[in-house]
């Protein structure tokens, strides 16, 4: 598997973590994983919900000191 891509969207007000993830997924290969770092609690909920809706895989989410790490795998 290729190296996991990391998007550090902490403190990113615009376009924000989910929009960055959407853009990155368009460039990723199927099976590739992307790790999004976010300081926005809303994104921690929105990202897994959106990922499930469009058929990618939410690998997991962890939270530490107000920073969420959300890992997503491109599935199609």
């Amino acid at each position: 598997m290729s190296e996991r891509q990391k998007i550090d969207a902490r403190g990113a007000f615009c376009p924000g973590p989910l929009m960055e993830l959407i853009a990155a997924l368009k460039l990723a290969q199927v099976g590739e994983e992307i790790e999004v770092l976010s300081s926005d609690k809303g994104s921690a909920a929105d990202i897994p919900a959106w990922v499930a809706k469009v058929g990618h895989v939410h690998v997991g989410t962890t939270e530490q000191d107000g920073c969420w790490t959300i890992i997503v795998r491109k599935a199609k």
Binding site: F13, G16, L18, M19, I22, W50
Partner: peptide, 10 residues
């Protein structure tokens, strides 16, 4: 719009 609101900036 791609995300769950009308603009990226809340």
């Amino acid at each position: 719009y791609p995300i769950g609101r009308l603009h990226a900036l809340e």
